[in-house]
Design a protein around this nucleic acid. Structure first.
Lengths: 277, 277
DNA sequence: GTGCGATTAGAATATTCATTCCATTTGTTA
DNA sequence: TAACAAATGGAATGAATATTCTAATCGCAC
């Protein structure tokens, strides 16, 4: 058995579990994963409840506690409960500490301040997104995708992550996707098979990637139904699109987090899947 | 007896107790004062414990719960426990409730509702991000990146958009980046040149992409300084990493918006650039 | 002071709970 | 394939728990 674990903080327990995880047996590993993911359930539940939710017999829970050096489940549970107590108490002390550290970071330490700035910016971009996107546009977009045989995705340069993500989700949902990435040469050839039976989702923000601006009109001219996601009605992927999602106030390329377009394409994909049933 | 109290929030219970306080008998008043002053004790204690600490017999505690319309102490205790879980996970609770109420309704299946659900979820994930990431970790991470000659990026499968985005931003900032994409065959060969002078940023969420789990230990074993972004301390890219960013409550692959990790890598990159001046 | 209803305390009870034990299964080595 | 050790699941057990019940007490009007 392991050394005795008298008093232990929740964070210490977490890392202790992470460390020993590999040395544990299969069932015990399963429990380890569950308790790290559902600490609140462990804190407030009974052995039987935790066992049921994690899909193991109750005795395994107790064995898990023993393996970590506790005398039993109850003893381990105390550590998880301390986390709850700590979470509700710190209205005064921790908030002050947080304020102090944030203030400090704004003045001196850069990275933390940068993160909070990006988080704040992302928050407001999400608010703007939900305000600017209308239900009718979304309905039209999902209708186009639903009818499409193949879905072509065009998003190069800084927009490439969005296109990749959309491709990933759509494929997970069983859709046929052609990702126009220009790999190995001509992006034109990749899109050559697109017809009016298919659909195109184009994503582009300033500065608009040249290949995007070049390819988009060709596909539109061939009658491929098109959904555009961009930051301005003057962008090269607006004219000819059936639906245009305009995401305003996109920061310059190096500073954009792509949070809003990522959310939007996700909603399109899942909305498509739910509407199909 | 009083009206039945089905589901009740902690705040509602508080004011209910305050209102009836005068109408209660002596002992029950005494208990009312205790539970308002020591809600945590009530949430986590047994009847016997609460009775002892408040200086009354156990049966009085049960009578108190009855007087408030609960079926018993256990029922009342649930309300006090809800306060604890609300304190530690404000976003999680709201998300679950929202999901459950909207999932099955016809409204929830319409694209617009789907979008607002993702927006809400993204919002809460950003809050969780800024709470879970500490300044020290960010400082260490940027220090590692600052010293690196080449920055290797490992993020496959669903995490690929994050890796791509980080590669894009870092390159814009003039950093030397090697994106491990496994294109054209062996991902091992792509990473073969990595040394202790370089750095690795690994990104992986459940289900952990097999190649990631395979390649990561190799690079760590070769002494490449590593920053991991993952969703659990038990993920295969934790052991051996210099810095681990744990992003909790990541939804299942098809439903994740990658909002939090996108923000995080952005902050890392820009923070690195600012600190370099 | 007396009688009556409300309130209380503590013992009794029935339930729930954590824990232990053992037969069975699983995985490993020879 | 056989034999062994480790691990597992489920039933058995005894402790702890919430709740109920009843006799005693208290407050109060008459």
């Amino acid at each position: 058995m392991n050394k005795a674990q008298g008093a232990m903080s929740y964070d210490e327990l977490r890392s202790a579990i992470a460390q020993r995880h590999r040395a544990l047996s299969g069932r015990l590993q399963q429990i380890a994963e569950f308790v790290l993911d559902h600490p609140t359930d462990v804190a407030l539940g009974t052995v039987a409840e935790v066992a049921q939710r994690s899909g193991v017999p109750p005795s395994a829970i107790v064995r898990f506690a023993h393996a970590l050096g506790f005398g039993g489940f109850t003893e381990m549970q105390q550590v998880f409960r301390s986390r709850l107590v700590a979470g509700v108490a710190p209205s005064y002390k921790a908030r002050l500490a947080r304020m102090k550290s944030e203030e400090k970071s704004v003045l001196g330490r850069q990275p933390a301040a940068v993160l909070s700035r990006f988080v704040a910016e992302a928050q407001s971009s999400l608010v703007a997104l939900s305000q600017s996107v209308h239900a009718r546009e979304l309905d039209t977009a999902t209708a186009i995708l639903a009818k499409a045989r193949d879905i072509y995705l065009l998003g190069l340069g800084g927009s490439f992550p969005v296109a990749i993500h959309l491709a990933y989700v759509l494929r997970k949902l069983g859709r046929r996707v052609v990702l126009l990435d220009g790999l190995g040469g001509s992006i034109h050839e990749q899109s050559h098979a697109a017809t009016t039976e298919d659909a195109l989702v184009a994503i582009s923000f300033r500065n608009y990637y040249p290949d995007t601006a070049r390819l988009f009109p060709e596909l539109v001219a061939r009658g491929v139904p098109t959904i555009s996601i961009t930051d301005s009605l003057l962008s090269p992927i607006v004219e000819g699109a059936r639906v245009v999602f305009e995401i305003q106030d996109m920061p310059e390329p190096a500073l954009r987090t792509l949070v809003a377009p990522m959310c939007l394409v996700q909603a399109m994909a899942i909305g498509l899947d739910l509407a199909a049933d």
